[in-house]
């Protein structure tokens, strides 16, 4: 299922931060993890994932570091910062409120997890 870009735009950073909160990941790994976790519902355009990561890095919500993995391939790993964690918590609360509000508006016609 493909979401409207604008609809996804607002929650993409939260999704990335939430995924990174479980451990550091490189770009491809991150996109795979999001897809897997969301059962292929949230498929961030891979091209836009990197500008999104760079933006989060500019806001000091994530940091990056080049590392060489077991297969001797160099990858850039992103990890969430303490500032990023704080932001994630705040965003989560807001999202919860948003879902509640959406449920009130749409009633039973919208199903939440």
């Amino acid at each position: 299922m493909k979401f409207e870009r604008e609809l996804l735009k607002g929650i993409a950073p939260v999704v990335v931060l939430e995924t990174l909160s479980r451990g550091k990941m490189y770009g491809y790994e991150l996109s795979e993890a999001i897809e897997a976790k969301s059962q292929n519902v949230l498929t961030l355009g891979q091209g836009t994932l990197y500008p999104l990561l760079y933006n989060l890095e500019a806001q000091k919500l994530v940091t990056s570091e080049w590392e060489t993995s077991g297969s001797s391939r160099k990858r850039k790993y992103y990890s969430i910062t303490s500032k990023g964690k704080e932001r994630l918590e705040t965003d989560k609360v807001q999202l919860a409120d948003l879902f509640k509000a959406l449920k009130l508006v749409f009633g039973n016609s919208i199903v939440t997890a």
Partner: peptide, 14 residues
Amino acid sequence: EDVQAEFIAHFEDA
């Protein structure tokens, strides 16, 4: 160069 290396790594992984 940094972005290029990251994109290359991404495509190689994929």
